[in-house]
Amino acid sequence: MSRRFTPKIVTANDLLEGDVIYLTADDRWSRDHAEAELIEDEAHAEIRLIHAARQSGSVVGAYLADARPGPSGPEPVHFREAFRAKGPSNYTHGKQSERHA
């Protein structure tokens, strides 16, 4: 019965900019996946998601995505989240360009 809970992060898109954002442990929205709060507990994940969904005046479509711990912070598990965290593969647009800038 006891299925192991895959750690999660809360992610959404910013209402104004439309870009990908992540909920941090200290209640900010970061542009950087590594700054997201890695949530290891299912009940806590639900609470954080509800907290995020309440901020509909500035964020859109909050949801929980699988993540795993990495050397400099949480890393995406699924390739969709990896693309969201990086940007498209045909141009260095999106987050990957901001990081270089």
């Binding site: 900019e17 439309g18 990908v20 005046g57 859109v60 969201r84």
Partner: peptide
Amino acid sequence: RRLDGSLTEDEFKPLRLMNGLYLQLHAY
């Protein structure tokens, strides 16, 4: 009205779609 909070996303989404505006992976 969406920006000042008087429209929720659920209310706004069909309106923006009617005007060709989608929210995609990285941006609108």
